[in-house]
């Protein structure tokens, strides 16, 4: 009975490789470098000015995380997703990132589950539940990415 996982195994490798680059990009752009995230924006939009947190909010962040601490304001993320040129690219990136991470994570989770669940019926139920959850997360994720900023 060849109940093959070959394709999923192959995709797990591919998605793992993608994740190296996508995670770095994601963290750099979304969570770390406020400037790098903003530059594309400033160049591309005519609006000219970047949204920012009010001074007292930034002071609060500095007090908590140190003088060099920076945060990426919500509005910056939103403007990127509303950008006339880059929005489609970023939305594409985010959706690919979502699909890749969900497949990678949930296939991995399924491996862990089948390590411990040996009963075939139990395995089937665990698999069905987990992929249903993944599908739910995919729908919510795609909805958020597509509607954000638009």
């Amino acid at each position: 009975m060849a109940q093959t996982n070959a394709l999923n195994w192959f995709l797990h490798r591919i998605t793992g490789t993608f994740l190296i680059f996508m995670l770095i990009t994601h963290f750099w752009v979304q969570h770390y470098d406020h400037q790098a995230a903003s530059v594309t924006h400033e160049v591309v939009t005519e609006k000219g000015e970047m949204p920012d947190y009010p001074e007292e909010a930034k002071a609060g962040v500095r007090a908590r995380y140190g003088e060099d601490a920076e945060v990426t304001p919500y509005q910056v993320v939103m403007q990127r997703l509303d950008d006339p040129v880059y929005a489609v690219l970023w939305k594409g990136f985010n959706i690919l990132f979502l699909v890749v991470a969900l497949h990678h994570g949930f296939y991995g989770l399924n491996n862990v589950m089948t390590d411990y669940i040996r009963d075939p019926m139990g395995r089937l139920i665990a698999r069905a539940l987990s992929w249903t959850l993944a599908l739910g997360l995919l729908i919510i994720g795609m909805y958020s990415v597509i509607t954000a900023g638009w």
Binding site: M1, A2, Q3, T4, N5, A6, N8, W9, N111, T114, D115, R123
Partner: peptide
């Protein structure tokens, strides 16, 4: 042989 190893308790449980 691939039929045997390409199974839920076979190759894909090698991590």
């Amino acid at each position: 042989r691939l039929d045997v190893v390409d199974s839920p308790d076979g190759l894909w449980k090698c991590y």
